Simulated scan of single mutants.
Amino acid sequence: MTVMEPRLTLERRLLREHPIVIACDEVGRGALAGPVAVGAVVVDAPRARKRVPEGLRDSKLVPEPRRAAVAARAAAWVSHSAVGWASSVEIDEIGIMRALGLATIRALADLRAHGVVPEDAVVILDGNYDYITPAGARGLRVQPVIKADRDCASAAAASVIAKVARDALMTHLHDELPAYQWARNKGYASPEHREAIREHGTTSHHRLSWAIEGAQPLF
């Protein structure tokens, strides 16, 4: 099977009209446990003239042993990068779509703290729905792009950076609660994860509103 390589075609076109492009992508949206994370990267015209980092793909297409190295190359290529988070509690309280928007706003705030002005950018958002503006963002030009993490190098960079950060967090949580095997399943609904929930109940890291069948809160 041929794997499509992400390009900079869209970024270069947008950079004719805007000084910077910010690309955002989420990871952890469908997990039963752990936060959702949104990666955000900044690409300017000089970066867009450089070669796409070796091995850069949508994080789902990068083998796990290679992801950290690819993420490091991606972070070195973009001018700035950040990861924003929304916790399992916040997902329960406000729903996954608003939580995605909240995580994105936090990632953009991190970029702003490093001198980036998001209002100067056009924001490429992977997917077909702008969940940033309804979360309270003002003055942003958000352009949802279906399969941006596959086709746009900037969104692929955001994807792999966020994926490596979230996987590291779930591995750390595994050390505290090894019964759920989060080092392997990263909080997703693997058979071993569901069996652990049935046996041990849920934790404060689980998304209780996702109606985990037969589970009772552990703490």
Rank of each mutant, 00 (worst) to 15 (best):
L177G: 02
V42T: 07
V89T: 11
R141W: 04
I197E: 12
L10N: 04
A86K: 02
D25M: 01
A31W: 04
A40R: 04
L177I: 15
V27R: 01
A23C: 09
A157W: 09
P53G: 13
M170N: 07
P217G: 14
V83N: 13
D120A: 15
V3M: 09
A162H: 05
V62P: 01
A68C: 09
V123H: 04
A179E: 15
L14Y: 14
V42S: 12
Q143E: 14
T202D: 05
P144N: 07
P178F: 06
A179T: 03
I161Y: 03
P53E: 09
H80N: 15
A68M: 02
L15K: 05
P53L: 06
H200Y: 09
S88M: 06
L208N: 12
Q216M: 13
I20G: 08
A107H: 08
D25W: 06
Y131M: 05
L10Y: 09
D130W: 03
P53K: 01
G127S: 07
R73L: 14
R166Q: 04
P178K: 03
L208K: 12
I132W: 09
V38A: 14
A162W: 08
A69H: 09
Q143D: 07
E119W: 07
H205S: 11
E199Q: 15
L102W: 05
I96D: 08
T9C: 03
V164A: 01
A135M: 05
L32D: 06
P191E: 12
A99I: 04
R57G: 02
L8Y: 10
S159W: 07
P134Q: 02
A23W: 02
R66M: 10
H206V: 01
V78Q: 11
G115P: 07
C24M: 13
D175S: 13
E54W: 09
W85K: 01
V21D: 01
A68P: 01
S209G: 15
M4C: 11
R141F: 09
C152H: 08
Y180G: 04
E195Y: 03
V117F: 14
L100P: 02
D58Q: 06
A68W: 03
A75R: 13
L61C: 00
A162Y: 12
A109M: 05
E192C: 03
G30W: 00
A109H: 04
K50T: 04
